[in-house]
Amino acid sequence: MNWRAIPYDYKMLKGDPMLILSLMVPFILWALMQFLFPFLDAMVLDRWTVDISPYYRQAGTFFLMLIPMMMGMVYGFIMLDERDGGIITAISVTPTGKSGYLKLRMGIPMFLSFIFIILYQLLLGLTGTLGILQVIVISLLISSQSLILLLVLGAFADNKVMGMAISKGFGILIMGPLLDFALPSPYNWIGAYSPLFWASRSLLAETHITFWLHASITFLFHLFLIWILFRKFTARSD
């Protein structure tokens, strides 16, 4: 990791509206859960006598998944900006190379996602019965979701216009946990194609065994996707 490059990264992104937006998303999601959910809960209970409070953790988990997705997308677009400007090509002919550049680009959204996810969970009390180690592990795993989105953009989009088209397909990932929550068993397994399905199951696990089982699947799933996408990205001629 080229630590010397990080301050310049900050200088480049300073005042960037995309970055500001990305930093605000976790707070917006937290505010939705903190203020809107209790309001909706009270309203639904009053009007239809339906109690939605048991779904608090599920709703919180769903919003939580949006944090790494947003980080991955924002930094993916920054990367496409750099590709459009020929920067990636210029770095490719230095000892750091494309893989060194990519590690730097991957580090920041991963780090930011991790911090925001930890804070989000602690502030909203989503950790349930999970211990500190489990919270850290699942937060790291969910953070790595940002890398998948960033790498999909980097590996398949030639420019920002293509990136926009590809990012429309990201909704399919977030459908995974939604299908799990919404459909009765065994139809809820349809959502298993998405790594978010497994990550959300770990977070909502009732026992240690189910936590570690789902966390392991999430880890392997992410590792496989990141490995494939990393290779695809570095094999590109730019």
């Binding site: 490059a5 310049y8 200088k11 480049m12 920067i87 000892p95 060194g100």
Partner: peptide, 21 residues
């Protein structure tokens, strides 16, 4: 075609690239 970081200054561009060696 010059491929530079447009949001950085001339000096910062050189300093950043120096960090890649």
């Amino acid at each position: 075609f010059p491929n530079l970081y447009l949001k950085l200054t001339a000096l910062e561009n050189l300093q950043l690239f120096a960090s890649f060696f």
